[in-house]
């Protein structure tokens, strides 16, 4: 199936500054693509170009079969966007905002009434639907912002930091609604600087830094791409035999092996879930007793460090 979004050399310059620098990316229909990066990485600018809000300086993107430069009106009919900062005037009410959005997106009156109620209920804003925006907390405004996309159910939904300022229960609800939307056929682009959110929600993650897309793949493959990124800490009852250690070292997935204490071994390896049974076999065959075993996979932060040399937090500070 051809990709629903094809981005080719997409570039945006503000003055001499590259906000997005020759970005190439394809988004498959029905996937959740996470764009992960610190503030200032170029995620929001990319989104704004896809939504035809701003024009690329160079390159273009095809959304569906439409060019964002040449057919912006048609592109906008495929897209729905929930912005990073809630976009509403102080005098509006959640009901006004979501209801008008549903109208503009062409929902029939009966469908609109039903969906507005459903969505405002789901984001826990139904009781506060007639309060003006200035009476709402940051989290409530954010819920209203995400409600616009949920009520629209566009073919391509773009959500920019959808759960920022939202409590953990709310986050899980919104993640579920986004997954449901994906399962109903929508393609979702998720821009976020929350590692966990990108990890649990995305089918693929693209890491952006200083306007460039450094890598894009499934979270698992990204983690696996760090050589020796998985770690197993093993504690033995006694000292493990040198032969057993050598056998472990011979596995092709094992990158490094350190004896941190006489009874402790730290193994740096790839694809930990596939290697653990083999390691257990070695110990069982050689009748080596172990007291504990702790496994850890690299996080997306490790992936980010791997590709940028900075943690996400450090990158955020550098951009600020």
């Amino acid at each position: 199936m051809p990709p629903i979004i094809r981005i080719g050399n997409l570039t945006k310059k503000f003055g001499n500054q590259f906000a997005v620098d020759h970005l190439n990316l394809e988004v498959q229909e029905g996937e959740i693509l996470g764009l992960l990066g610190p503030n200032g990485a170029g995620k929001t600018t990319t989104i704004l170009m896809l939504a035809t809000v701003i024009k690329p300086t160079e390159g273009t993107a095809y959304v569906g079969k439409y060019d964002v430069r040449k057919q912006p009106d048609k592109v906008r009919h495929l897209l729905g966007i929930a912005f990073q900062e809630p976009k509403m005037l102080w005098v509006s009410t959640p009901w006004d905002v979501v209801n008008w959005h549903a109208k503009v997106c062409g929902l029939s009156t009966s469908e609109r009434k039903k969906r507005v109620k459903e969505v405002l209920d789901a984001v826990q804003m139904w009781d506060a639907r007639h309060k003006t925006v200035h009476a709402l907390s940051g989290g409530m405004r954010k819920r209203v912002e995400i409600a616009k996309v949920l009520v629209q159910r566009p073919r391509i939904a773009i959500v920019d930091e959808p759960t920022a300022q939202i409590d953990i229960v709310g986050k899980h609800k919104i993640w579920k609604m986004l997954r449901d939307m994906r399962d109903e056929g929508s393609t979702i682009i998720l821009a976020t600087n929350e590692l966990y959110e990108a990890d649990v929600l995305s089918d693929r993650v693209g890491i952006m830094h200083r306007g460039k897309l450094l890598v894009c793949d499934t979270p698992k493959k990204l983690k696996d791409s760090i050589v020796g990124g998985d770690i197993i800490d093993i504690q033995f009852e006694g000292t493990p035999s040198p032969k057993a250690v050598e056998e472990l070292r011979s596995f092709k997935e094992v990158v490094n092996l350190l004896q941190t204490r006489p009874q402790n071994l730290r193994v740096y390896l790839n694809r930990v879930e596939e290697v653990v049974p083999k390691i257990m076999n070695v110990f069982s065959k050689r009748e080596i007793a172990i007291t504990s075993m702790h496994m850890s996979e690299p996080s997306l932060d490790d992936v980010f460090v791997h590709y940028t040399g900075l943690t996400l937090e450090e990158a955020q500070k550098a951009e600020a």
């Binding site: 939504a51 809000v53 966007i81 912005f83 976009k87 509403m88 005037l89 959005h101 503009v104």
Partner: peptide
């Protein structure tokens, strides 16, 4: 200006409405 300040302008420009 009020809309530009609150980012509502971006929202309006992203809607399925011709310019």
């Amino acid at each position: 200006y009020e809309e530009a300040e609150h980012g509502v302008f971006e929202y309006l420009l992203s809607l399925p409405v011709s310019r």
